[in-house]
Design a binder for these strands. Structure first.
Lengths: 233, 233
DNA sequence: GCATCTAAAAATGTCTATATAATGATGAAA
DNA sequence: TTTCATCATTATATAGACATTTTTAGATGC
């Protein structure tokens, strides 16, 4: 098959495995591929119009990201996050987000702080609108945190945090639905921006912890509503 | 070629990619494959007596572990850790090891605490011997920390910490050479065991931080000695 | 009616071949 | 002598074929 059909960015070269990886990843995060669903190589190869090789390599990457689980000789299936694991991930994020905000407060340039402020404004504007697109909202939230991550100047930290956040994209829609939460989010983001601006490290840490803890509570509440929506594999 | 030649553990099934992965990983960590060295698929395939497919998939895994770097269309080479990146990794480990020891102090069973004590004794006995095997010593150290990690009951945390530790195995030999350091290590391990036994969380955290900070200093010293031994890629 | 065994179908693991891209060397021209 | 262009070599990316294993469905026996 021709490359141009599937390539998203014709400018730069991207291996097919990468295209397949991004495609599958998006489908999993959006819930189009449901937890437990099997990923069969031949089926996917036919569906995406590529051979099995790039499919296999994409699945390896997804496996390492924790989005799919491999069982030798029995193939891959979409990982099913238990509530326990969700808590595990958030606990790690809490530690690392604290580290990140500490570094960011110290290292971010004035220009970056302004970017952070802009991102916060974009986010709150989006929330202000009625009928706001949850996907857009999620992306704006992601953008906000990305700026902080980049401000750490620690590439490995950025990589790990992005990976951990990714684990939770599947619940993002769930928890952004809650109207009350959105106002809380704005307040927290606002407080973070202010603390960073004034280079008050401990205050920033305090708010960030609050931010993560609230996220934990909110997601758990959303899961309770959905009633056993993510109970085990 | 027959499977049995390469399989380490004939009991259980292990995909070839896994065998290749472990083989290459060990060679990189031991320094047999040096930073910057190219990993050519056909060469490796011939050397290990397998086809290119498992080699490719093993390289993908190594890439994700951060041990090799892929350049599209130009192949893979062994990752070269800069001093900057080493610092980055240790900073993350510091945060997560603190989290780990907190959880371990709270959650480890009495049986596990005894295991930890045993591991510590094994370690210090090994150090006591003259002509101690550095590989064995490294493994004993690994064992000690593994018990703490397992005690956290947080699988994702265990996975991330193991991965981060792995990044530093390449320097392990360097820093275990230093005789003075070994005594310090014993003292620190001892203090950790004691704090865990008595369930004194803050004390355990304090010692753990010290432990990591010392490690940072020691490795940096070792690198200074070696003079620009790991300067950039 | 249920369990067990067998056979067929399907999926994974592995291997090899072909196409494409990149690098390095060689030769010619300025 | 140096530089640029072309060609040959080499390596990767993808595809497709083959072998092995697992699973499922159907038939038979209890």
């Amino acid at each position: 098959m021709s490359r141009t059909e599937t390539t998203l960015n014709p400018e730069e070269y991207m291996p097919l495995r990468e295209v397949v990886f991004l495609t599958l990843r998006r489908q999993i995060l959006r819930g189009e591929l449901k937890p437990g669903e099997r990923l069969m190589e031949i089926t996917l190869a036919n569906k995406l119009g590529v051979s099995r090789t790039p499919i296999r390599e994409a699945i390896r990457k997804l496996e390492h990201e924790g989005l799919v689980v491999m069982v030798p000789r029995r193939g891959a299936h979409v990982a099913d996050i238990t509530r326990q694991e969700l808590g595990d991930v958030l606990e790690i994020r809490r530690s690392l987000d604290v580290l990140a905000i500490r570094r960011a407060v110290r290292l971010m340039t004035e220009k970056e702080v302004r970017e952070l402020k802009d991102a916060e404004e974009t986010f709150s504007k989006l929330i202000g609108e009625d009928e706001s697109d949850l996907t857009l909202l999620g992306e704006a939230d992601e953008q906000f945190h990305d700026i902080i991550y980049r401000g750490t100047r620690n590439r490995r930290l950025i990589q790990i945090l992005n990976n951990l956040r990714e684990q939770m994209y599947r619940f993002r829609v769930e928890y952004l639905k809650d109207i009350d939460i959105r106002q809380t989010l704005i307040r927290e983001h606002d407080a973070i921006v202010k603390a960073v601006e004034e280079r008050r490290e401990e205050e920033a840490v305090r708010v960030m912890k609050l931010h993560i803890d609230n996220q934990y509570r909110t997601i758990n509440k959303a899961l309770d509503m959905r009633c056993a929506g993510v109970q085990n594999a």
